[in-house]
Design a protein around this nucleic acid. Structure first.
Length: 465
RNA sequence: GGCACCUUGGCGGAGUGGUUACGCAGAGGUCUGCAAAACCUUUUACACCGGUUCAAUUCCGGUAGGUGCCUCCA
């Protein structure tokens, strides 16, 4: 497949570094609060990427759980988000991490995100690896120690900020960066010391003193531990480009002397009502907020996949409702696998070809909107022509492919019950007898059971409301 | 202030140097016991101004407006 590589700003063919395996690392959540829709966007997109990659390669996908060390400011001062969250909620940092890690995993389940749950790796389970990486950097002379921690000297890494195209001089001229004791504004903490006389919920011994790892080091340490020194693909939000990914590249490549990742992909932001998601606007809706309004998490999945990952997208409740309708139409088409017709009157759809087309557009820089356009055209054709019994196998194969690639779980819906089948037949009999009262009453009965009916030329077709 | 991006029909959102994207929503009609579906029609989509070209929404330049990052964030 082809993918836009932020590092080169061009679309490139993905070819595995080793055998046929793609090592894929996506930056994960800091588990200190309930994830909101903006957070989910990236994981939904990376899931689509993963599903597409699996069609061609063996995929080895990891996401980190940042359960320590993410400071409230990239300036390396300020508090650890976990410790702050803990104080806010009267819990320990460990309890906060556990609570929100569970929420994250529950969300992955609801959104049908296909990462192996054992590949969700925690920063706190990999402290030794982080210390080892810092040690390697220290031995190569990239670090220095000041009062509050061990820092990476960004000026010793020649290509610092290359991917982000940072204008270091411009950054340093800006008055907004408070350098503090750091030697340069772009230097960053590798290890932070627990302040004298304090105790943190989360702290570890290290060669430099008791403390905790910086935010950036965990990603490098875990990515390289699980996937090797050079990753095939590293993903994250576009906001990570200038600081987090810039620092990951610097510390990883300084330590190994090898490229950290071959391909970098970045997910653009989703706005809400055209504005950025922020606490003050209270527009950071959670999956629970969606559920309260009667939406399924998969409706959000549809909304997100309707736009391309590199473009800025927009969330409104109206758009979410449109996405829900679109998803239900897809489900209704899939449910016709239980209602195959025997008539030769209707045109056969070339399901295999549709599948190939969908794969092709996804292989072309993960064009999910075009894939969904093809799906919708297919849905229209199915509504029009139905699916013939002679095509049962091809149709099932295509539905399986759609579930594999897009993850809407269309194959999980069950056939209607025998009782419901009988009601449909009774209604047919009533209609033939022109007993409209009975006919309508039976239709209402099914409606209360969540089944809608269409009386098509092929006969009555049911769908789930 | 520095850097980058965007501007497509009521909303969302692809794509293309000359052909209906697609979805949702609205209006009228055909059909139907009704409903739904289907079908037909409909509201002359590509910010504006120039340029290149036989031809630009699609390439180039400018103008206007918007957004993002630089500061927690996907």
């Amino acid at each position: 497949m082809k993918l836009f590589n932020t590092n080169t700003r061009s679309i490139e063919e993905i070819t595995p570094l080793h055998d046929n395996t793609i090592g894929f690392y996506a930056c994960g959540p800091t588990v200190y609060a309930t994830p909101q829709i903006g957070n989910w966007v990236a994981y939904i997109r990376w899931d689509a990427l993963a599903r597409t990659l699996r069609q061609s390669f063996d995929l080895n996908w990891y996401i980190n759980i940042t359960d320590v060390g993410h400071l409230v400011s990239d300036a390396d001062d300020g508090e650890d988000k976990l410790e702050k969250g803990a104080r806010r909620e009267g819990l320990t940092a460990w309890e906060v991490a556990e609570t929100y890690t569970k929420e994250f995993v529950d969300g992955l389940d609801a959104l049908n995100i296909s990462i192996d749950r054992s590949h969700l790796v925690k920063a706190t389970d990999n402290i030794d690896e982080q210390i080892q990486l810092i040690t390697a950097l220290e031995q190569k002379g990239y670090t220095y120690i000041i009062k509050d921690g061990v820092y990476f000297d960004s000026t010793k890494f020649a290509d610092y900020g290359k991917m982000a195209r940072l204008d270091i001089a411009g950054l340093q001229a800006g008055a907004r960066v408070d350098v503090g004791e750091k030697k340069h504004s772009t230097d960053f903490a590798l290890w932070k010391f627990t302040p004298k006389g304090q105790r943190r919920d989360m702290e570890w011994d290290s060669p430099w003193g008791t403390g905790f790892p910086g935010w950036h080091i965990e990603c490098s340490a875990m990515a390289m531990k699980y996937l090797g020194e050079t990753l095939d693909i590293h993903a994250g939000g576009i906001d990570h480009i200038p600081v987090h990914h810039t620092n990951e590249i610097a510390q990883s490549e300084a330590a190994t002397g090898k490229p950290f990742a071959k391909t970098w992909v970045h997910s653009n932001f989703m706005l809400v009502d055209g504005q950025k998601i922020s606490k003050s606007l209270q527009n950071g809706f959670t999956l629970a907020d969606l559920a309260k309004k009667g939406f399924d998490a998969l409706d959000l999945r549809m909304l997100v996949l309707q736009s391309h990952f590199q473009t800025e997208s927009n969330f409104t409740w109206e758009v979410l409702a449109a996405a829900r309708t679109r998803r239900k139409e897809l489900q209704a088409a899939a449910d016709q696998r239980y209602q195959l017709h025997t008539s030769a009157t209707y045109e056969n759809i070339d399901f295999a070809d549709v599948g190939r087309q969908i794969q092709a557009v996804l292989d072309n820089n993960l064009n999910t909107p075009q894939a969904l356009a093809l799906v919708s055209s297919l849905v229209n054709d199915i509504e029009k022509h139905g699916v013939s019994q002679t095509q049962a196998a091809e149709f099932s194969e295509l539905l399986q492919l759609l579930d594999d690639l897009l993850g809407f779980n269309v194959l999980t819906s069950e056939d209607i019950t025998g009782e419901q089948q009988s009601i449909i037949q009774e209604r047919e009999a009533a209609r033939n007898a022109k007993d409209w009262a009975t006919s309508d009453k039976l239709r209402d009965t099914l409606q209360t059971e969540g089944i809608g009916l269409n009386d098509t030329a092929r006969g009555t077709v049911w769908y789930r409301l």
